[in-house]
Design a protein around this nucleic acid. Structure first.
Lengths: 130, 130
DNA sequence: AGTCTTCTACGAAGACTTTCGTGGTTCAGA
DNA sequence: TCTGAACCACGAAAGTCTTCGTAGAAGACT
């Protein structure tokens, strides 16, 4: 198959919708709107339009077999997150992932368990890699 | 002193300029343009306009005592980076800094030295925190 | 002084983002 | 069948981002 064409970086509003779809799984505009309108005052047709645009961009896939179309994220959460991190690293950290990691860690009080998890990941990287 | 008002998140083009100013220190439009135009085809007045807008937004400070105005970043690199990381964490990682760190680490082959540095930071966090 | 270069200011075009109103269609309930 | 509710498509407005052309002021050079 052809190499997956790079999808555009989601905008803020688009990311808000993606997060809902990653959490709920395939959903209708109504479901997404019900959830987001609890946090923010936003019209139904605004969500609809955004999700249509996202489908045009390739960010979402749409199942039109039912009257209420069902949307789902084209890419998995982790793939998009990786893309966003990579983008931020190159735009704001001069390409240094370590700087980002250090910045993130130092500006956050992590719990002992979280620290342990990160250590574990570091162990794996050191052990298995190369 | 009053609490520093939150500056707007820099856009991509603005970040490009900020990076130059953080690297070079206070600079004229000419200097910034000379450097950036080597990487990208961009007009002088485009840079000028952008830096004027950034000054209006409060992202830059301008010294007008000379004919060629001298611009510098209002915030230190680390402060802006922290803001951007926080923003990405909340918008794309559901508020979990650890998820971002894990994602960043797992998508990058870090060198042994880099891993060691991160470990050191984790040690400090565990030791000194609370 | 006259000319050429360099600078700032201004305005505006074009693209993108976010918002929502209107209109037409489909479906359920009276 | 008629009415109302829910849905989608469409268009457009308002805001932001990025771009650059033009004009005028300031300096440098001859």
């Amino acid at each position: 198959m052809p190499p997956a064409p790079q999808l555009p970086r989601p905008t803020d509003a688009e990311l808000e919708i993606l997060r809902v779809l990653w959490d709920l799984g395939p959903s209708t505009v109504r479901q997404v709107h019900d959830l987001l309108s609890r946090k923010r005052d936003v019209g139904y047709t605004t969500m609809l339009k955004l999700m249509q645009i996202m489908t045009d961009k390739g960010l979402l896939l749409r199942d039109e077999s039912e009257r209420s179309h069902v949307y789902r994220a084209k890419q998995k959460e982790a793939v998009t997150q990786k893309q966003l991190v990579k983008d931020l690293v190159s735009k704001a950290f001069g390409g240094s992932t370590e700087k980002l990691v250090m910045q993130a860690l130092s500006s956050k009080k992590a719990t002992a368990q979280e620290i342990a998890e990160i250590r574990k990941l570091l162990d794996e990287m050191e052990g298995g890699a190369q």
